[in-house]
Every structure is written in C-alpha cells, then in structure tokens.
Simulated scan of single mutants.
Amino acid sequence: MTDIFDDLAAECRRFDELLAGLTPDQWAAPSAAPGWSVADVVLHLAQTSEVITDPAGAQAKAFVDTGTTVDGAVDELVAAERGLPPDALLARWRAAALAVPEHLRAQPPGTRLPWVRTPLSAATLATTRLAEHWAHALDVAGPLGLDYPDTARLRHVAWLAHRTLPYAFAVAGLAAAPVFCDLTGTDGTRWTYGDPDAPSRITGPAAEFCRVGARRLDPGRTSLAAEGPHGQDALRVLRTYAA
C-alpha cells in the first residue's frame, strides 16, 4: 500500500483530464450509474470529497443525518443540488477532490476518520476514494465511448476488495471465510492477497476482479476462476464500497 496518497492524487488528476475535455452535451448525458447523468456522478464525488475535507460541514451532516441506506443518502444529496452548470461543478469537484490526498496524508498516525459505516484510517480512506473515482470514471467514459485505460493503481482497488471480503460476506448474510486471491496485474506481474494456504481462491485478471468488486461487471462475464468451498460465494459478494 505504499504511495497510496500519491496514487490517489494521480487518479484524481487523470479523472480531471477526462472531465476537462467534455462538452456540455456530454455533461448532460446519461452515465453508467443508474439514474445519474455525468454531471450527477461528478456532483456526488464532489459532495463526498467535501465530507472528508470539511467533516463538520453541511455535506457531512446531511450524509450522516439522512437516516436511509448509503445509496439512498447519496441519491438524496445529489437530487438536492442537481443542476449546477458544468464549469461550476468542475470547479467545485476540483476544490474538494484534489485537496483530499494531502488532507489525508497530513493526518497524525493512528487517526481514524468518520466514513459511511465505520471510521477508517487515512490510508484506507484514500484507497476507498481511489476505488470510487476509478469506478465512476468508468461510469463516465464508457457510455461516452472514451478511453480510460487501466493502470497499476488498480493494485489498491484489488487490495480493498480482498480486505473487505469479511464485510461483503456479512452483508450477504454469510459467515466470513479465508480466500486467497492470485491475480494477474495490469502490468503483467502477479498480485496476491491473503493466505496462500486458504482452502478457497480466486485467480485471473486483476482488472476483472476490480470491476466485479466495484459492481461494474458480473462475475459470470469474466475469466476469473473461483475454487474451494467459498470461492464462488466470495466472487459473488465481492464489493469495494459500503452497502
């Protein structure tokens, strides 16, 4: 997990490059996130970044006080502020999101920050934000027919998907079980997570594994292989964000 803050900053800059080239029609176009336009996706990322940089602010309070599911909360927040012009929206996202990496890097060791379902360390929260920006970049680029090539930064997303497997099992009403993930990284190297002696394992391309964890790709449409008593369940429940 070295350089997670640098990698988060790099992912945000790459997303910025994608957004900076969009036309007004593209901002208004549907994204791959159900019910959201491209502008809605960016507004969501701006709002959630503001929760991190201003934990006592209005966005943080609305996020905590909504009293609904995580998906319901973010939908309500987006609906409340929908309609900002693209220039203003891009400026707002930049002001919040591009400040997050250094804000998190500056946290004292051992600090845990409030986030959705449970407080997270600065490094884990940075990993979560990288995963979310990457997944939403796919939501923007895919429907618009724009390229958003995978990078080695997906190693953080793969780590997060494996690290949160106990949570994913619990959300699905299943008992947690050890699963070893032996993946082929975007650079062709081997990325491994967990105990190699675990009775269950998942093997295959890391890019597909990350997309399954982000709920952007059905496991049945991948070349991933699941073995052992809990491999198939792990692949089915895999997720990189809170329910």
Rank of each mutant, 00 (worst) to 15 (best):
L77C: 06
A79P: 08
A80P: 07
E81L: 12
P85K: 05
L89W: 11
L89P: 05
R92W: 10
A95E: 15
L98W: 07
A99F: 00
V100G: 09
P101C: 14
L104V: 12
G110I: 13
T111P: 02
R112Q: 13
P114M: 03
W115Y: 14
A123M: 06
L125E: 05
R129M: 11
H133Q: 13
A135P: 06
H136D: 13
A137M: 07
L138P: 02
G145H: 14
L146A: 12
D147M: 04
P149C: 13
D150H: 02
L154R: 15
R155H: 14
A161F: 01
H162I: 02
L165T: 03
A172L: 02
A172H: 05
G173M: 03
G173W: 11
L174W: 00
V179N: 00
V179W: 00
V179D: 09
D182W: 02
T184P: 02
G185C: 01
T186V: 15
D187R: 06
G188W: 04
G188D: 00
R190N: 05
T192S: 15
Y193L: 05
G194K: 00
D197Q: 10
A198G: 10
S200E: 01
R201Y: 03
G204N: 07
P205T: 06
A206G: 01
A207P: 01
